[in-house]
Design a protein around this nucleic acid. Structure first.
Lengths: 230, 230, 230, 230
DNA sequence: AATGAATGAGCTTTCATTCAT
DNA sequence: TATGAATGAAAGCTCATTCAT
């Protein structure tokens, strides 16, 4: 059944080859310190050839981001789809994230650079891409959170706000871990955070006292409110 | 009483002048897009003069980071020093952070760039600086957390891990807010997170069931453990 | 009678097709700004195919020039052949030139570029081509001028010099017209020039005074003389 | 009185130095074949230094054109100012042009290239510059022509059209001369043209016959007419 | 004959940094 | 101390041309 790859297939294969090489160089050197010649040399192809597939250096960078994030997103969707109860789903999401980041630990700084680049680039295509992915991930979070609430495992909480918070927390822990030189277990950090967020830190006494106020805050969230202000 | 400033004072004043101009340009254009001539022009001085104060562009960037982070750190310390009970201290820390970031909202992308730059720079001076500051801030967090525990407001928790987690979360929320285009209230987001972390999301039923396990996780933290591994 | 075109005929047809497309692109973009891919795209053929017909970009450019100039030259010869008396011939030559340039007004800048290119090209093939064509056109001019003189319509004049002068004038007016943005009628300009050159601008009084001197100049021309110098 | 040159004077001097070197290289190699490194090397300065004076290659090219045309224009104005009677003025204009072109014979192809470049450049600054200069030169021509007519040395002629025609003719002859490889005397060519235009080529017989018609044409010119059409 | 992927020399432009004044 | 002219390494990108299929 195996046939010679058709031209378009070859083209995509070469495109992937370039991307896979580029991600390594971008990751280890950073966007500005990576020169196109480096990528070409690593691939043993001519500089011009890269430009046949990616007209601008920035396009290559964006494609690298896309490739990477697609992998992450698909893994996250798979995590949710592969489990039935929301608790398992939540665990699976964390596992997936940890595994993904640990597997690509050396690419980690890239994410920071994508973010920095997105905020600087003259075009907002990077930002749009980031936001769209975040939106999709947040929807996953909302779904799981809602299920948790339906099963009375979670208290009433604005699931939209919570999902966004969780994404931020996830990135924040990862960021911390990278800046700290990956000196502790990323998984442990995520698990610790799960415990903190799950059961809270207050003692039962204090918890009872602030119950009403907390309840309100949780249900309000922080996203809907702000719409009223701005 | 007023005298002509001595030479060293003048020097420091000019240094500050350069820094204050530089931070604005770095913030709006980014590190790579900022050219030394821009800074000189804005100050109406010659390019060479900047080099009298900062031998390398990177030094200027680092000094900008230091100036900014010093302001933040001092505000954080003041927040703790100005209050007696740990609850007020915790609130003050959050307020300070929110106020600081909101006041300098336009400088926000800079922080990302500092981080990205730190991970890329050939010298690790940026990373060292970041880690030292994080360490000092974590100590603040440990102090407040310990007080909370002593007063039986917080459950037993590894305060070192919690402080690091909190820093990560704080950065993560900020990062999210920046990437999302600052479209919601940063303060609301921080307050929401405070509620989530404080009282947790589990219902009492679930909370009781997982009590032991959670208790253990919280007390272990994630930092000491990892020492055993690596 | 109609048969499938033989291979060579097909080849020539395709060659022409390429030329006709190329002239439009060269005309609108200029030699350097025209890239071979543009030409191929416009023809919906592959880049490599063009090279089957024109080994170098310069060859394509030269062929475009040839095609264009051949058309002009043939029209000029036809103008002379189609009329009997020299006055009509002269009128027809002007008409032909005006019609040719007006018809191809959008190609006009090309001529300038051919000239510039000819003076720059490492090979002198362009210059040779231009000079040969000018020579043939000058011969036409000489023929008509001689006839005019024979019929005593023209004074004694060195017809070689006069023909060369006329060619220069013709190009000069055209050039002026192009640089001026084609804001006046090219035909009017040519007709005006015809009147000036034909009857001269001097009043009869002045004309009489300088008669001898002028007579001499006209008969000497400027071409034969210079041979003695260089 | 002689002092050390002030900074601005030095700057202008260096600018001129660059221009004088650049014109030679542009002239011998052409715009596209001239690379900035060539110019820098000839000056024994660094490439970057040229960019301190001329931000773009095109700016350098334009400045070369300006420098050259300024010299020509000033010489032309001087020619007119230095003589009283219009006949001498006209002679002086021709002499000046011939001398200018002969003196800079090796730069000659540059003019063609300026024109070609002007018609191609994305900015119209070149074209504007050319047209402005032509306008000023045409005004000179009008002035002299009018004086000729006032003294009854010239017949009635639309002096505006005639001046524009003369400019075109002048360029055309020069162009011819350049393309012909400067093989004859440019001065002789100009003088020959002066005779042709001055006294005309028609015999007295023919001249009398077409007198009315020619008279009308000369008085109409070709520039005013065209306004009515477009 | 036609294709189009691959090539790589080559060019403009930038800008951190230096240093003579 | 301050200046700003000079430097020159560096890098992104282009595109005519080649050639295996």
């Amino acid at each position: 059944m195996a046939r010679t790859k058709s031209a378009p297939e070859n083209r995509m294969a070469k495109r992937m080859l370039i991307l896979e090489t580029a991600i390594g160089i971008f990751a280890s050197k950073g966007y500005h310190a990576t020169i196109m010649q480096d990528v070409a040399d690593d691939l043993s192809i001519a500089k011009g050839t890269i430009y046949e597939y990616f007209p601008k250096k920035e396009d290559l960078f964006l494609a690298v981001y896309d490739m990477w994030m697609d992998e992450y997103e698909q893994a996250m969707h798979k995590a949710v789809d592969d489990h039935f109860d929301p608790v398992s789903k939540a665990d699976a999401l964390i596992d997936t994230t940890v595994e993904f980041y640990e597997k690509h630990a050396n690419y980690a700084p890239l994410l920071l650079e994508f973010w920095a680049h997105a905020l600087r680039s003259s075009s907002d295509i990077f930002l749009v891409r980031i936001r769209e992915m975040k939106k999709r991930l947040a929807e996953l979070g909302v779904e799981v959170t809602n299920q948790m609430q339906k099963l009375h495992l979670f208290r009433k909480v604005d699931s939209g706000s919570f999902a966004v918070l969780e994404l931020g927390i996830s990135d924040g822990i990862f960021l911390q871990w990278v800046l700290d030189g990956q000196q502790y277990s990323l998984r442990d950090a995520y698990k610790f955070r799960q415990s903190v967020i799950g059961s809270g830190l207050m003692t039962d006494t204090l918890r009872t006292i602030v119950a009403t106020k907390v309840e309100k805050k949780l249900q309000q969230g922080f996203i809907n409110q702000s719409i009223n202000r701005s």
